[in-house]
Design a protein around this nucleic acid. Structure first.
Length: 889
RNA sequence: GGGCGAGUGGCGGAAUGGCAGACGCGUAGGUCUCAAAAACCUAUGAGGGCAACCUCAUGAGGGUUCGACUCCCUCCUCGCCCACCA
């Protein structure tokens, strides 16, 4: 018998699959239901595939193969998220141009994926750095600009001094470091392209309801969007002597019920009122102005890490002015402090120190008044002097005029009505979600297809005032929601003529980030200088590029169409930069729309949980915006989302070069074969749970496959004699149960228990009728077991299918076996408990299976009667499951 | 501080109202071998007992139930996400 040496046939099987196009997408028709199974696509780093990648991709592959065998029309594509920081930083480190290096990385990734037996339809391969691909990324950018979702503005951005780029808030970790490079982040004010994702906040929140996603991810998105209902209250500002000045301070609060307890106002250091005092527009004492100036300067210079380190320590400066509380005419001093965030609400807070710990700390630090207006559960009515007494929860109102005695909820409603009626404020909804900063001062990204024309800007012409802009607004009335401020501020900015796309990223030797807040593209004069699409005067291109999220926001759509898909064109592009034909395939045409309709949304989306508020939120946003543009007729991209757990090293640390604990999938495949690696990673734990690498457990998976190999290679094709008929029936019963279990488990991503069930069956099969174990099943039944193993171990099963059974077509295109009639066992074994503790079993034939008979034979059982000991009892029988005899007394 | 999840043998885990520890790893003993590896066989939660068996046991404590790893309450520990969000 041949030994199981995976290296000897895995390559051959791969060639067979390719030749016979086994993984080719089958188009869905009336009969075949479509299944779109997708793994989150990787950025092709130089390090090659991680064993963590293997886990995600194998999971999706098991699903794809399972559904294919169930005769569904399956699309299972793969592509490359090749723009962005990780690729670029790696390239810089290697001192290579990313445009030269990334295509090599892709080749390596692709080779590794084939080696693993991942059943991708490579005809649909795409890469985000392919000009044929990002042509549409740019085109979409322009559409979003036209509908008023994009604007450019000076904004304080999170800035990574190491990566030398601005970042989105989502890319900043809670310790104030950069998600990608781990270095501390500062803030810098830069002109940025910004996406108005906030105008979709409500839809992004509400549509979560219908998604079959992990609960945790849904929660994270909900929290990130962070919808809060409250009220904006405007206060008049006065001097200490109550003489009014012509200013108002508007605060946002969710607890207006506590407003009788308000004793001060705090503004963010960036607040306009503060700026006005510092600039001298509002006059105040010199020493106050100086203090304020110093404080603001100091707090704005802090890095986020410094802010975080200071945490709860309260700092601040007094403005010299007071706000008048309308409710009780109280003068509330106006302070500034960096615990108030300029981006949230109105950037101003009303201080209620009795019922907010932060406010209390601030009041204590600066000697401000504390008033109790709520009596909480503890019933404490005494003045609040200690932090522990601060009542943040609900309760009953006191010291609050007409609100006294009311509960928190009633008081809130009553005072909101009251304030609105008096015209002092207005109910508002705020969100934690901020607009999405979309520019990066880096080379390796899609060029932003916008041009700035000084000539037009001087005449205050914005795109929306051009003929084209007016026409667009008329034909898209439902979505033309760019507000007046945006229109006003966007004078001089024009999108490229769409026919000229793609705006290709130029090949350059100086691709390293500049650190000046401008991208390296700025230095390429011939590229920057262009003509204004509107007036024809000389103009300048936008030199910032898009973030790496851009390409991944719509790639799942692109797979749907093969026609406008293409092989990576980077090399062609470099050889013939002027050959537009070669780099331009299709557009958002009818064919593309039809393909999208056929395949989208994605049915199964598998990937890590780390994208919860990044890629998964951005993609949902783009899809909704595209729906509004009439490009799509659905609102959610991913129907089912499943998370994969991380694979960490054997020493329970992250796999990393510096720890020297990296497992390279190539080595594993070389030694144990791809099937063993796949089985191991699917078997070790529930799919969404973290696993630590274990080479001995991997060897267990190999042993299992080795036994499969042996039993099939010693398989005799003769039917079995009648002598063992009964046992054989049992084995076939077990086989049917196993088929049922695997069939149920796979769509629930319970891969570990599916594999355990198959191991159990193999144990039984081997034990049965030794030493001729292989004779114990008929050929047809032996094939069924091979088939249910096929999605997990595609190579070994194919090899046996073709070369042991002599099948003509791939096992992966065969029909998934039916579990058949479960063989009814003649005898049934019922566990018997006495007082809830297992004491014995009764074995009865099916005919005798009445409750009466069971109880009769149970009490006769020696082990049972011993415990009954003549006492009275009642019996509880759960049909076919268990009998419990409960003793009286 | 807020949200979510998890605590079961030496280890990864199974069972989610009905026989706790499936399956795998590890360990011990054995077969084969001059020997080793591989492969195969047997045992393997803890305690007691020659044994049949018995007792204890799913983070801790309480509750519901004929019956709880599973449901409810209180607490402890760990992990992940968010966080000076008004």
């Amino acid at each position: 018998m041949q030994k199981y040496i995976p290296g000897e046939f895995e390559k051959k099987i791969n060639a067979y699959w390719e030749k016979n196009q086994v993984h080719k997408t089958v188009s869905p028709d009336g009969k075949k239901e479509k299944i779109y199974a997708l793994s989150m696509f990787p950025y092709p780093s130089g390090a090659g595939l991680h064993v963590g990648h293997v886990r995600i991709y194998t999971g999706t592959d098991v699903l794809a193969r399972f559904f294919r065998m169930n005769q569904k029309a399956v699309m299972h594509p793969m592509g490359w998220d090749a723009f962005g920081l990780p690729a670029e930083n790696a390239a810089i480190k290697a001192k290579k141009n990313p445009m030269d290096m990334v295509p090599d990385n892709i080749k390596n990734f692709k080779k590794q994926m084939s080696m693993l037996g991942l059943s991708y339809d490579w005809n649909r391969e795409l890469s985000t750095i392919d000009p044929a691909y990002y042509r549409l990324t740019q085109w979409l950018f322009i559409q979003f600009f036209k509908m008023g979702l994009l604007y450019k503005k000076n904004t304080p951005v999170y800035f990574c001094e190491f990566c030398k780029t601005g970042l989105a808030e989502e890319e900043v970790l809670s310790d104030g470091t950069h998600e990608r490079c781990g270095r501390p982040i500062t803030r810098k004010e830069l002109p940025q392209w910004i996406f108005r994702i906030t105008s979709y906040a409500d839809r992004l929140l509400n549509d979560l309801e219908n998604l079959d996603w992990p609960e945790g991810i849904l929660e994270m998105q909900k929290n990130w969007i962070g919808k809060k209902e409250g009220i904006n209250i405007a206060y008049k500002v006065s001097n200490k002597d109550r003489s009014a000045i012509d200013e108002k301070i508007t605060v946002f609060t969710t607890r207006p019920d506590t407003n009788f307890g308000a004793t001060f106002i705090v503004l963010a250091p960036e607040h306009d009122f503060v700026k006005k005092i510092i600039s001298g527009k509002i006059k105040t004492d010199d020493w106050i102005k100086k203090d304020l100036e110093e404080y603001v300067k100091k707090s704005l210079a802090k890095t986020d890490q410094e802010r975080i380190n200071e945490r709860r320590k309260k700092t601040g400066a007094f403005t010299g002015f007071y706000a008048v509380n309308n409710l009780n005419n109280r003068l509330m001093p106006i302070w500034t402090s960096d615990f108030v965030l300029s981006e949230f609400g109105t950037g101003a807070v009303v201080g209620v120190p009795g019922h907010d710990v932060r406010d209390f700390e601030f009041a204590k630090t600066f000697g401000l008044d504390v008033i109790r207006v709520v009596v909480g559960k503890d019933g404490d009515k005494t003045p609040i002097t200690k932090k522990e007494q601060v009542e943040e929860g609900g309760g009953t109102m006191i010291n609050s005029g007409f609100l006294d005695e009311l509960g928190t909820q009633d008081a809130t409603n009553k005072i909101m009505d009251f304030i609105e009626k008096k015209g002092w404020g207005k109910r508002v909804v705020t969100y934690h979600l901020r607009d999405w900063i979309f520019s990066r001062q880096r080379y390796w990204g899609e060029p932003i297809p916008m041009v700035f024309c000084k000539n037009c800007a001087d005449q205050n012409i914005s795109w929306w005032k051009t003929d084209e802009g007016i026409r667009f607004s008329k034909s898209h009335q439902n979505i033309s929601k760019q507000d007046k401020n945006i229109t006003k501020n966007m004078a001089g900015w024009f999108p490229l003529v769409e026919q000229s796309l793609p705006l290709e990223l130029p090949y350059t030797k100086s691709y390293e980030p500049t650190g000046t807040g401008e991208s390296p593209l700025t230095k390429i004069k011939g590229w920057v200088e262009t003509k204004c699409p509107h007036c024809g005067a000389s103009a300048k291109r936008e030199t910032d590029t898009m973030p790496n999220w851009a390409g991944s926001c719509w790639y799942f759509l692109r797979f749907a169409s093969q026609k406008i898909n293409s092989k990576s064109q980077i090399s062609n592009y470099k050889k013939n930069p002027n050959n537009k034909e070669q780099n331009l395939f299709g557009t958002w045409d009818l064919e593309f729309r039809a393909s999208i309709k056929k395949w989208l949304p994605v049915d199964w989306y598998l990937g890590g949980a780390e994208h919860a508020v990044l890629h998964l939120l951005y993609s949902r946003f783009w899809v909704k915006a595209m729906q509004d543009l009439g490009l799509l007729d659905f609102s959610e991209p991913f129907l089912r989302l499943r998370n994969v757990g991380m694979v960490i090293a054997e020493d329970h640390r992250k796999m990393s070069k510096s720890f020297g604990n990296i497992i390279n999938p190539d080595d594993v495949v070389l030694e144990y074969g791809a099937d063993a690696l796949r089985i191991y990673e699917m078997f070790m734990a529930p799919f969404n749970q973290e696993i630590a690498w274990s080479t001995t457990a991997l060897q267990g998976a190999y042993r299992f496959l080795n036994r499969v190999w042996k039993i099939y290679h010693s398989f005799k094709f003769n039917p079995i004699t009648s002598k063992i008929e009964d046992d054989k029936k049992k084995l076939i019963g077990k086989l049917n149960k196993t088929i049922q279990k695997v069939t149920d488990d796979i769509p629930q991503t319970k891969f570990n228990t599916a594999i355990a069930a198959m191991m159990e069956f193999l144990n039984d099969w081997e034990r049965f009728n030794k030493p001729l174990a292989s004779e114990s099943l008929d050929v047809d039944e032996a094939k069924k077991f091979l088939q249910i193993l096929a999605p997990f171990a595609p190579f070994i099963t194919e090899e046996i299918w073709l070369n042991v059974f002599g099948e003509k077509n791939s096992i992966h295109l065969s029909n998934w076996p039916k579990s058949g009639d479960l063989v009814v066992e003649e005898e049934l074994k019922i566990p018997v408990q006495v007082d809830g503790r297992l004491r014995s079993f009764v074995v009865l034939s099916r005919q005798d299976l009445s409750e009466k008979k069971i109880i009769e034979s149970a009490v006769k059982d020696e082990k049972v009667s011993k415990f009954i000991g003549g006492k009275k009892y009642k019996a509880i029988y759960v049909k076919g499951k268990i009998l419990n005899i409960v003793l009286a007394g």
